[in-house]
Structures are given as C-alpha cells and as structure tokens.
Simulated assay, not measured.
Amino acid sequence: MLSQKTRYAIRAMQHLADCYGQQTVPLSEIAAKQNIPPKFLTVILSELTRFGIVESQRGKAGGYRLSIPPVDITYGDLIRVMRGSLALVPCASRHAHECCKNCVEEHECRTRALMLQVRDRTAELLDGVRLSDPIALEPSFAPAEEAGT
C-alpha cells in the first residue's frame, strides 16, 4: 500500500498540475482543497522542491508551482520519489534491493519471481500515465456487509 505521505504528495501534485501555467498556488489552498494537514504538506512540498519537481516562491504572492510540465511527470516518477521504489518487497527493488530476511535463496524464491512481475507490470502502468493525463473516476466500493462478503 502507498503511505499516507505518498498519497498526499500525489494529490498535491495533481492540484499543481491542474493549476499549471498560472500563478503560484498558496500552500493553504492546496491543503484545504486536497484535505492535507498544512504542516505535513510543507514537508512534502519541500521534499518535492529538493527533487526539482516543484518550485517555491516566498512573499505575498508566494506559493508553489510545478517546475516542469505535467506531461513530463509520470505517476511512477512521483511514487519513486516519495517511496524510493515500486517494488512490494525489498528483494524485487531495482534501486533499493535488499535480500529478504528469513527467506530462501533468491534464485529459489517463487515469491520473489512473482513480485518481480508485479513490479514490472506496475511500473509499466504507472510510467505510462502522466500527471497531465485525465483519469476517469470510479464509483466507490459498497461496504462489505452490503456487498454480501
């Protein structure tokens, strides 16, 4: 699962993408419209600024904006910046690879083999969707008791 920090970062970046080409966006606007705690958002935007994806402007007309066009930012990029990897297990990570503790040898591990496939398909999907792309909304899931499960 994505961390709360990563989900907030994605929503903040979607908001900035929607405002791309306009004035800077105040932190308070992003926080209010995306339901993100302002102090946490400050940390997230600072991190995204260090990675060069967002730029900030101080002062009365201050705020944040994307430093590169939304068409040049994929969801895979965002998740990698915030999480470090798309892999669900450390042994399937390309850039943060670690052997799993209490596991069989990697070359014998079917779980790792499956997770490598999951990582690659996830990367293919997330790297194919850009921040500028429209995303169709899906209906909410019915509560478990209503769905009969």
Rank of each mutant, 00 (worst) to 15 (best):
T42M: 08
L41D: 00
P37C: 11
T42L: 11
V43G: 01
I53W: 11
K39S: 14
G63R: 09
G59W: 08
T42W: 02
V54R: 08
R58T: 11
T42I: 03
R65I: 04
E47S: 08
K39A: 14
I30E: 00
E29C: 06
R50V: 07
E55N: 13
I44F: 03
P38T: 06
L48I: 09
A31S: 14
I44S: 04
P38D: 09
R50Q: 12
I36G: 00
N35W: 05
P38K: 13
E47H: 13
Q34L: 00
E29P: 01
G63S: 10
V54G: 06
P38C: 07
L45E: 04
F40H: 12
N35C: 03
A32P: 01
S56M: 12
A31Q: 03
L48Q: 05
Q57K: 15
A32C: 04
I36W: 00
P37Y: 07
K33H: 03
T42N: 14
G52H: 12
G62Q: 12
I36A: 00
S28R: 15
A31C: 04
L48K: 07
L45G: 02
I36E: 00
K60C: 00
I30T: 06
I44N: 04
L27D: 01
Q57R: 15
E47G: 06
K39C: 02
A31H: 03
K33Q: 07
L48T: 03
E55H: 11
I44M: 09
E29F: 05
G52N: 13
L41R: 02
P38M: 08
